[in-house]
Every structure is written in C-alpha cells, then in structure tokens.
Design a protein around this nucleic acid. Structure first.
Length: 429
RNA sequence: GUGGCUAUGGUGUAAUGGCAGCACAAGAGUUUGUGGAGCUCUUUGUACGGGUUCGAAUCCCGUUAGUCACCCCA
C-alpha cells in the first residue's frame, strides 16, 4: 500500500454535510429574493476562453495578471480559464445568444463556484462561491438601486443586520481621465508623507491609495480630490438618482470616495456591503457590485450595453452567519423508524419503505444492522418515537409490530393499515 | 507572489531526545426478537520525504495542507 495521503488542493475545501445547511440557506435566500424581482436563473460554464477575462476584466488587474487558473486543452488550440468572476461570462452569454433583441432589460441571477489563485486567508479561498445578479440593457439608475436593494434584502433574509453600505461613483470615460490626472498630481505632492505601501501603490495602482487603512495616510487623504467632484453631467445626474432611490428605500449608505473596484469594466456606480463587526471586517466585503456600461464594447460588441450587477461572497456571508449564530429552521426528523429481523423481513421492509415514501412519511432505517438491539438503539438516538418492527413471524402473517419508544407499548398492525395507523399516531402527538 | 505561526487515531488532547497514552466518537458483545445507563472487548494516529542521533512525535531541511498578515478581492 502506498503511504501517500491525498489532501485537498490549497485553498479549496470540502463542503461537509454539517456545513451544507448554511450553503442551502444562502442559496434559498438568494433564490427567493431574485425570483421575487423577476430575475431568471442562468448558469455559465466553469471554464471560459482565457481571452474573455483578459479583455473583460482587464490586463492590468490582479485577478487577470496573477490569479487566474489558465491552461491549454489537450489539442493545444484552446486556452481556457477557470472563471474568476461571473459578470464577463454573463455578458458573453448575453451577446452570444442575441439577448439584445429580447425585451430589455435582461435580469439574470446565478450561484456557483469561482476560482482565483491567491494565497488563502480569512474569507479568501482559491475556490469560493458567489451568488450574483445582473441587469443587462438598462441604463436607468433604478437598476443600480434595485440591485443594491436586492443585496440588502438577501442579507436581511439571512438575519444579518449591522451592515454598512459604501457607495461611490467612479465616473465614465468622459470624466474619469480628468480625475485621475488631478489625483495623481495631488498624490505626487504628498508622496513623502504616505506609508511605504502607498509609495509602492503610487506606481502600481494609485486609486488604491485612497483605500489605505494607515491612519497617517487617511489624514493626508482627507483632502484628496474626490471622484464625485469630477463627475461629468451625465454621471453626476445618474449617481444623484441612485442615491435618491436609496433614500427612498431607507437603505443607509456611506459615500466612500476611497471605494474603487479592482476590475476594469466598472464605471459610474460602485458599491460594497460589509459587516460592522471588526473581526468580520477583516474578511473583506460581503458583497459588492457596480455598473459596467463598457463591458460589451470591450468584448467587441458594436454597441455598448448599459448594465450593472452585484455578487455576494457566500463563504464570507456564512462566516458572519456563524459569528451571529444563525438559527436554522428546525430540522424535521424522520417520523418513523423501520426495524427488521430475519432475511425474509428484510426483503419485505424495502417494499414497506416505498409505501411510506409514497404516503410522504419520512422514515429512517438501518437495514444493514441485523440485531434488533442495535436498530432500536439507533432509533432512540435519532429521537424517533414510532418504530415499526418486522420479523420472521410478522412477515409471514403480513403484519408489523408497532412500538412506541416513549411508552414502550407495542401492538400488531396489518401491513395494509400501516399508513393509516401511523398517520393516526402522528396526529396524536 | 512575500512573510509569521501550526500539523499526534474520526474529534479533542498528553508525551520537551528514551515503551505513543487519555477522553469522546465509532464498532462488537453483555446468552440468540426489544433502546437510552453500566460493564467487557475492538478498530483507528505522530501529514509526506529526507537528515542529525545509539535512539526522533520531539532537533534540522524540503514538500504538502491549515491559519494569519501584506498584496488584492467576493
């Protein structure tokens, strides 16, 4: 025998049965809210052409530069990537299937795994799960607001309160260049006072400096030029409208001029929701999103498709659910336990199981254990009061023994009357 | 990608260079068709690969994985 022990790949995890209820709860919450808002579910392949992300997400971004799982297929012709995010694939599907010619906007939602080759840490994994929604073909600010509202509703559905929403507008092609220029000038003049990280960021990604947590930097940046002050008329009006909707919805928000999303395709509205819990804050935002009016063009479409989207990090949300001790709906245990003794009874018991299933009665069993003792032990461990016992004698007579575990009382019941009798007993409890 | 910490049965832990032990869990049994307790017994481990040493779970190196921070992001 080999001594090798297989382990999971770094940053990728088994979702064990005990954690499944959390994933289900998040999925159900997302499904419920999205469907209420008339979003249709969509699934795109886990693999996409690498170019989709190179072009869509942006060559300069970290996701594309360092974090993608990209490989050649066997023929060597295709270069594929494990999807690192959901928006570009959905825009691809939208364009590919001619959804422009359907009534606009197209509203879709999704839920599934995504992959980024990063060093794992709290709230950050190489395989992680997101749910998200996209509204394609709609430039109106109401779409932005709707997505934010949906995001909020999903988190509230999961009983997660104490959230902060940060929102910002990063402008569009018309106004962003001007802002960048001014910001660069400002940063250059203050460069010496900034922390070492920011010095580095100045070259690599100056917008990120605005997000620095260093207190000294924050002081300096307090009077940095803000993107909102540079918005062109169109962007300004759009952003104002989004905020008006949020006020109408009574969703609390913070204008955060430091909020800059890392992907190239964003324009105008960007937002993030995070927990106010300090520990959870370190795990990054729970969900985020924004508008990406340029993505379609970046992907080679002749016309721009105004669109916006949002995505939630399921692992991060679950971490918060656990921290807040999320209460699940009480689990309904099996209503009866079926015990068998003797080979003949064992054969009969599978058929009885089927009768029970058709009658929609949840039943537990342990057919592989032959000792009645062990079977009753299990029934009691599972907390099931009603046990059906079928042995050689009963199998021949066409009856079963019905035992109440609490009182210890037993009675014989004809096999045809099992369903009726069980329903009767369940009603009594 | 850079740096710190960690790794002993399924789980939680002990052994500080000298016999790998304990608890829980799991399984079997406790006289053959009646459960929860008790008792008896059993299975399962030093992540992997090297090195130092008479002798390594223990010290060193590498790998893998976990975890945390940076970077960045959901």
């Amino acid at each position: 025998m080999s001594k090798i022990k297989f382990q999971n790949p770094q940053g990728m995890h088994d979702i064990l049965p005990e954690d499944q209820p959390y994933y289900e709860a998040v999925f159900e919450a997302a499904k419920k809210v999205f469907e209420f808002y008339h979003f249709k579910k969509i699934d795109t392949p886990i693999l996409e052409p690498a170019d989709l992300f190179y072009r869509g997400v942006g060559q300069g971004t970290d996701i594309v530069e360092k974090e993608m799982y990209t490989f050649k297929t066997k023929g060597g012709k295709d270069i594929l990537t494990l999807r690192p995010e959901g928006t570009a694939p959905i825009m691809r599907a939208y364009l590919q299937h001619g959804m422009q010619s359907m009534p606009q906007p197209i509203k879709v939602w999704y839920c599934g795994p995504f992959f980024r080759h990063e060093r794992p840490q709290a709230g950050r994994y190489r395989e992680f799960h997101q749910f998200g929604g996209e509204i394609l073909g709609e430039r109106d600010a109401v779409a932005d607001a709707e997505l934010i509202s949906i995001n909020y509703a999903i988190l509230q559905e999961l009983k997660l309160g104490d959230l902060v929403m940060k929102i910002n507008s990063i402008g569009d092609d018309a106004c962003r260049p001007e802002y960048r220029k001014t910001l660069n000038k400002f940063l250059k003049s203050k460069k010496t006072g900034l922390c070492r990280d920011c010095q580095k960021r100045f070259k690599t990604n100056p917008l990120r400096i605005l997000d620095c947590k260093n207190e000294k930097c924050r002081e300096i940046l307090a009077d940095a030029p803000q993107s909102v002050d540079f918005l062109c008329e169109d962007c300004h009006a759009h952003f104002k409208e989004v905020l008006e909707y949020l006020e109408e919805l009574k969703i609390p928000y913070i204008l955060d001029s430091g909020l800059v999303r890392g992907l190239d395709y964003y324009s105008k509205t960007v937002f993030e929701i995070e927990s106010t819990d300090l520990e959870q804050k370190n795990q990054g935002s729970l969900s985020g999103g924004g508008r990406y009016d340029n993505l379609a063009k970046i992907l080679g479409n002749n016309n721009a498709v105004p669109a916006c989207g949002t995505a939630g990090g399921i692992e991060r949300i679950i971490a918060l659910m656990k921290a807040r001790e999320y209460k699940f709906k009480p689990f309904t245990p099996s209503q009866v336990f079926l015990a068998q003794i003797s080979p003949l009874a064992k054969k009969r018991s599978l058929a009885i199981m089927e009768d029970l299933r058709r009658a929609n009665i949840k039943v537990a069993e342990s057919f592989s254990k032959d000792s009645l003792k062990a079977q009753l032990g299990l029934a009691s461990k599972l907390g099931i009061d009603n046990v059906l016992i079928i042995g050689q004698k009963e199998a021949i007579q066409g009856t079963v023994m019905m035992r109440n575990m609490e009182t210890g009382k037993q009675s014989e019941v004809k096999q045809e009357e099992i369903i009726k009798e069980i329903k009767q007993r369940l009603k009594e409890n």
